[in-house]
């Protein structure tokens, strides 16, 4: 399990990354944390001719933003995001999901942007990014561009990023106003720390009378990409999130999806787990919001 030979470029700034990608052609690949790329290379399922290492690019590290949006630079370590008070305050759903991502050793190396660009349909971070309707920024030699995440995931580990583009920033909108936020992240995996069989992410806003004013729901592991489940989110709006509404909303999610099966889980098992995970994530989010409303 040794990678095929490749050439290596360590970039020191974004311009260098873009230049290298531009010069390197389609067999040129960015390495960030490498937690997925390196195993793929070891199995020779991936064999880039050049890898461009972005770990030394300081512009790609850090967490910032303003009142309306949390900005995570693409090469920020998952562990750094996990420890960040800012992430906990502004994107509590991401903070919650990060605990499900691999293990300490992989989070110390794996990056937030790398996981999104890698687009594994059962990975937690792309799922959260989709749930929160993240804005992405990518750069190439031609300049920077904004990418709407709704069009970003194209298929199994495929995205709209062109081979010469580097994901640079992830903008997670901060939900302000209208009530109290609650988040839910639930997944079923066979072992702790494994990729999920199915994962559900939910973020809600509940007003002072307990009515749901805003909702976002998404599922991972049920399609070649993470999926937003709008029907479920809509079903929750204006309700007081009673058990019956939540149950029906979760049921809608199961009807929206057409999962595949594999050695770990049949398609039917995935579908049924999707309903259960969505239901539990909504309840988790609702209860958290109500708790926070009661103890502001």
């Amino acid at each position: 399990m040794k990678a095929a030979a490749f050439d290596y470029i360590r970039a020191s700034d974004i311009a260098e990354v873009c230049q290298a990608l531009n010069d390197g052609g389609p067999d040129c690949k960015i390495i960030a944390g490498g937690q997925t790329l390196v195993p793929m290379m070891a199995m020779r399922l991936a064999r880039p001719s050049i890898i461009v290492d972005i770990n030394a690019v300081e512009e790609l590290q850090g967490i910032g933003g303003d009142e309306s949006s949390l900005v995570i630079k693409a090469c920020t370590r998952q562990a750094a995001a996990e420890r960040s008070p800012e992430v906990r305050a502004k994107a509590p759903l991401l903070a919650k999901a990060l605990r499900f991502v691999g293990h300490p050793q992989t989070r110390n190396r794996g990056t937030v942007g790398g996981s999104i660009a890698n687009a594994d349909p059962v990975a937690e971070i792309p799922l959260v990014a989709l749930t929160l309707d993240a804005g992405l920024v990518a750069e190439s030699a031609g300049g920077a561009k904004n990418i709407d995440i709704s069009g970003f995931f194209h298929g199994l580990m495929e995205t709209s990023l062109a081979p010469d583009e580097c994901l640079t920033e992830v903008h997670l909108p901060v939900w302000n106003g209208g009530g109290v936020i609650g988040t839910g992240f639930q997944e079923v995996s066979i072992r702790a720390g494994d990729f999920a069989i199915v994962a559900a992410a939910v973020q809600l806003v509940v007003d002072e009378s307990g009515v749901c004013r805003r909702a976002a729901v998404a599922l991972g592991g049920v399609a070649p990409t993470p999926l937003r489940i709008e029907a479920t989110a809509e079903a929750l709006l204006s309700s007081d999130l009673d058990a019956e509404t939540v149950g029906e909303a979760a049921h809608l999610a199961a009807n929206e999806i057409d999962p595949g099966g594999d050695v770990h889980a049949s398609a039917e098992y995935r579908r049924r787990c999707a309903r259960v995970m969505v239901e539990r994530a909504i309840i988790e989010a609702r209860d958290e919001a109500l708790r926070r409303a009661a103890n502001p």
């Binding site: 079923v188 066979i190 069989i197 770990h264 889980a265 049949s266 098992y269 049924r272 787990c273």
Partner: peptide
Amino acid sequence: MRPGDIEALLR
């Protein structure tokens, strides 16, 4: 006894 087997039986 994997989760999917048990869940299928429960169903």
